[in-house]
């Protein structure tokens, strides 16, 4: 099966810093993959390259067989690691904006999710707390019927109750021909719902394996494994 997201010998430099260093990674359709790694290991860079926001210095990137560009942006749903919605808009406005921008956006689904999370239609983005802004942004991103979801820290500032709702939303919404890649540090919260984990260390792929295989082989949870590998 053709991978949804495939990078080959991918490198990206910020001056002398190697953010990604000859990285090879392929995501199969139907998989929910956790992108793990310590701070500065290249997670956000990898996600931004997939979203078409950064260009690689070396190597190749294919999304559904295409190089990043307008055509891939139509099939990639990207959640940035910071707030990127216009602060003067209300929830209702941003729903309309997404529906104008993305052909695969399901307005009804977005409204349902916003309602479930008790988010008001008329509140301005700028007047929301950080966690609430993140929830709105995630509702929008998950309401698209994309081929590839790139979620950068979707759970960071969100309370535990909403976290559970968001995880089950991700589980319910991804389909067999789409893949989800999401970066997070909350490993113990999410490892049960993942198919696979990809762990980065200093821009290189340390490991890409199924969660159950890793648990079986190492006799510990992914969380414990991570702490052992990256002990400070």
């Amino acid at each position: 099966m053709q991978p949804v997201y495939e990078v080959h010998k991918l490198s990206k430099y910020y001056g002398r810093i190697r953010a990604l260093d000859h990285l090879d990674l392929a995501l199969a359709p139907g998989k929910l993959v956790g992108l793990l790694g310590p701070n500065g290991s290249g997670k956000t860079t990898l996600i931004k390259i997939g979203a078409g926001l950064l260009t690689p210095d070396q190597g190749s990137v294919l999304i559904g067989g295409m190089a990043p560009g307008p055509a891939t942006k139509a099939i990639v749903s990207y959640l940035p690691d910071r707030m990127a919605l216009p602060t003067e808009m209300t929830t209702k406005d941003v729903v309309s904006m997404y529906s104008d921008f993305f052909a695969d956006f399901d307005r009804v689904k977005a409204q349902e999710m916003l309602r479930d999370l008790h988010l008001s239609d008329s509140q301005r983005i700028g007047s929301m707390s950080k966690g609430t802004q993140e929830k709105v942004q995630l509702c929008l991103v998950m309401s698209r019927a994309a081929k590839l979801y790139l979620l950068d820290e979707p759970l960071g500032g969100v309370d535990p109750a909403a976290r559970e709702y968001i995880l089950s939303t991700i589980l319910r919404n991804y389909s067999e021909d789409s893949a989800v890649l999401f970066s997070t540090h909350l490993i113990s919260d999410i490892e049960k719902v993942l198919d696979e984990v990809a762990i980065l260390r200093q821009g290189k792929l340390l490991l890409h394996d199924s969660v159950d295989h890793l648990r079986q082989e190492k006799g510990m949870s992914v969380d414990e494994f991570f702490k052992e590998v990256f002990r400070c």
């Binding site: 998989k31 559970e164 319910r172 049960k192 993942l194 159950d212």
Partner: peptide
């Protein structure tokens, strides 16, 4: 499957 998976909070493939 999906219902059981959601109930257990695990991945449907698992």
């Amino acid at each position: 499957v999906r219902e059981l998976a959601a109930e257990a909070g695990v991945n449907p493939n698992t």
